[in-house]
């Protein structure tokens, strides 16, 4: 019905998260209608990003420069390393502006089910960073899932010989959360992690 270029565009858009074939068709139509104002700038932005963005050789973050702007920022505390599973987690931490140290992106978590072992993750470079010295604390900010916490414990074992203090994020009641609506697992961990007032 449509030309091969449009079909290909729809097919590629349909591979994006959140878009099925029907919404991909809508997006393609919208782009075609706004060719000058949206489609061409988007194409240029995509091409620029594909050309310029790469993984930071120090932490695994995505940026146009290597080392990334976080690793290169001398105002950030190089003695604190926050370990996250994915770049999305790093962005979430940066959104909150709650951490002024540096990061290390693992690129996933250990998962026997998906065949992801330590070799598939960015663990070797973390061990090297810590072994190089100057690190005062490593904060494990892996997800509060069985795989995420298994990864955190594994990292703790790998880093144990370097005698750097290891901490992990607290698990518990979210801000604005009502106890009545919390799942039992979160309540149990919150109870375990209670602290003196």
């Amino acid at each position: 019905m449509n030309g091969p270029e449009i079909e290909r565009l729809i097919q590629l858009l349909g591979r994006l998260p959140g878009l099925g074939p029907r919404s991909a068709r809508r997006v393609a139509l919208h782009l075609l209608k706004k060719r000058e104002t949206l489609m061409q700038p988007l194409g240029t932005a995509l091409a620029d990003a594909a050309r310029a963005i790469r993984a930071c050789s120090v932490c695994g973050n995505l940026d146009t420069i290597d080392p990334c702007s976080i690793c290169a920022d001398s105002r950030r505390d190089a003695g604190l390393i926050c370990v996250v599973e994915d770049v999305g987690d790093l962005w979430a931490m940066e959104r909150g502006r709650i951490f002024s140290g540096r990061y290390h992106v693992l690129g996933g978590s250990l998962s026997a089910l998906d065949g992801i072992g330590p070799e598939e993750l960015n663990i070797g470079s973390l061990v090297k960073r810590v072994a190089a010295g100057g690190v005062r604390e490593v904060i494990m900010a892996t997800n509060a899932t069985v795989d995420g916490q298994t990864t955190a414990h594994y990292l703790a074992e790998r880093l144990a010989e370097h005698e750097v203090p290891l901490t992990r994020l607290a698990h518990g009641v979210p801000v604005g959360g009502e106890l009545d609506w919390l799942d039992d697992g979160t309540l149990a961990t919150a109870f375990k992690a209670r602290r003196a007032l």
């Binding site: 026997a112 414990h153 375990k192």
Partner: peptide, 21 residues
Amino acid sequence: ELREPHAARAMDDAIELAGLA
């Protein structure tokens, strides 16, 4: 519906979590 959150209870202890997994 969750009845017993064993995963959450085991998360703090590396050996227990490894045993559960």
